[in-house]
Design a binder for these strands. Structure first.
Length: 260
DNA sequence: ATGGTGGCCCGGCCA
């Protein structure tokens, strides 16, 4: 079973690439972030023609998350149950082939002195509270998406440059750590403790070509899913403007989890 | 130190 998380940076801009990618990579479950659309433009029919069901949570041209599956899709939950969400479509869950799959889009934070940064920390608290409340760590669960947090220096192409900046602060890391403390495992870092495993590169200039990236997209597994892990890998081709047609990739690469 | 790109709906916001 192959489960992927991918921040597509607008589904309207990336719909064709998504459909091609699902088939070429034999994706069973895709967790998407930043669909940036309502249900109107969401490609439900095109996905169905390829054998995929989909659940989408998008209200306007900001944020938006989705679960796409060709191995079943049940018990869809949009937003947090605990708080009825903090207003933006940043989380959706569905059960696919027995695995509770959560697609999360953590607020960016903008900068540490911006009110959006406090919102980011609150949102991470809320995510941990929700996972605790539903007992996600005690069943087969995968919480994956764009966390907008790099947990250690290894997650930054230039850790000095990012020190105490957005994505690298102790507060943000503590926010994500709450999930690890519940029993979740950061699959990419556990499997590859010394590789950068970058998932995002700024569009600007030659950042991708120079591999100046960050690892801010995470796949966090409950012990039950962790025990089933075969491999986890970053699909860099899908981020490479020289490898995709048209040459307009998302700024994030998919993170792909293979489990048995 | 700055500005470089891309996506959104229409010059500025957000990544």
């Amino acid at each position: 079973m192959r489960i992927a998380t991918w921040n597509v940076n607008s589904l309207r801009a990336r719909s064709d690439q998504l459909l091609t990618w699902l088939i070429e990579r034999s994706i069973d479950v895709a967790l998407l972030q930043e669909t940036k659309c309502t249900d109107g433009p969401f490609p439900f029919d095109e996905l169905a023609a390829l054998g995929y069901e989909a659940a989408h949570h998008g209200v306007n041209h900001w944020n938006g998350v989705a679960v796409i599956s060709r191995c079943g899709l049940q018990d869809v939950q949009r937003g947090f149950v605990t708080t009825d969400e903090i207003g933006e479509p940043r989380v959706i869950a569905a059960t696919c082939a027995g695995v509770r799959c959560w697609s999360v889009y953590v607020p960016n934070g903008r900068s540490v002195d911006d009110p959006h940064f406090a919102y980011k920390l609150r949102w991470l608290d809320e995510l941990a509270a929700e996972m605790n409340r539903v007992g996600a760590a005690n069943r087969a669960s995968l919480v994956a998406g764009d966390f907008n947090v790099g947990m250690t220096d290894l997650d930054f192409y230039d850790a000095k440059r990012w020190k105490n900046k957005k994505h690298a602060t102790a507060e943000e890391r503590a926010g994500v750590q709450q999930l690890l403390d519940l029993g979740f495992v950061d699959l990419a870092r556990d499997r590859y403790p010394k590789d950068p495993m970058f998932t995002w590169w700024n569009y600007v200039g030659t950042q991708f070509a120079k591999d100046k990236g960050l690892r801010i997209d995470l796949a966090l597994a409950s012990p039950e899913v962790f025990a089933r892990l075969e491999d986890i890998w970053v699909d860099r081709h899908t981020r490479d403007p020289l490898a995709v047609e048209p040459a307009k990739p998302s700024d994030h690469a998919p993170l792909i989890v293979d489990v048995h």
